[in-house]
Design a protein around this nucleic acid. Sequence first.
DNA 1: TCCTCACATCGATATATGTCGATCGGTCGC
DNA 2: GCGACCGATCGACATATATCGATGTGAGGA
Lengths: 120, 120
Amino acid sequence: MSGATATPTRDPIPLRIRGCCQPVAPRIPGPDAEECAAVFRALGDTTRLQMIHMLAEATDPVCVCDFTAAFDLGQPTISHHLAKLREAGLIVSTRRGIWTFHQLNPEMSAAAREVVDLLH
Amino acid sequence: MSGATATPTRDPIPLRIRGCCQPVAPRIPGPDAEECAAVFRALGDTTRLQMIHMLAEATDPVCVCDFTAAFDLGQPTISHHLAKLREAGLIVSTRRGIWTFHQLNPEMSAAAREVVDLLH
DNA sequence: TCCTCACATCGATATATGTCGATCGGTCGC
DNA sequence: GCGACCGATCGACATATATCGATGTGAGGA
């Protein structure tokens, strides 16, 4: 061996040039690393994931009471999750008389759209 | 109008059959709603998102010290994030002498692979 | 005008998460 | 064996999050 802190030989899995601790392109190009993470964070909850799935399957906007009926959660909690999805730019809400209807945001970012489309 | 608790007329945005509160297909088919959410949760952090991006760009496994050099975080924090990605099944780690190298899990679930491929 | 209904917001609480410093364990070179 | 190095783990801490009950708000019906 050539040394612990220098260049180790890595026969089966060769590394880059001089082994360990090569500088690697660190950052996601573009300004949207945090924005992209926010979309994933919004989908990182089972309830919200199923909400998005319901909206992706539905052909028409979905009422809040549909969600409260579908999930065993209180109305404030449903409202909280919908607000999270709205903040992430994944859904839009429309007030119509007494009811509020929700649908996938048609102006969703392209990156978010790609992710949501995976849940078709 | 026909009534608040009965069937509202919804001219521009027609809903399903009798308006609000129709039962909607609630669940993601398959057992993997929570597993899918776990993948999104793993990607819902800027540091981990960039780690996955680095691994997706790299042609060879990446050493821990590469990550500690790329991010302004302590070594225990880097180790913590790598453990999260490992628990989510997104990466695998290989011990080689002193160093531990990480790469995208070649046996990642198909759903996870689709998401990671979006970060190419 | 008053009541009801649908939904949002507030306050509280328990849990999860990101980060750090300190320490431990394993793998070398000497 | 000893010491150096890499990386994982532990304990602590601050913050974020998921959830609930209670309350506020706005729209409609009676």
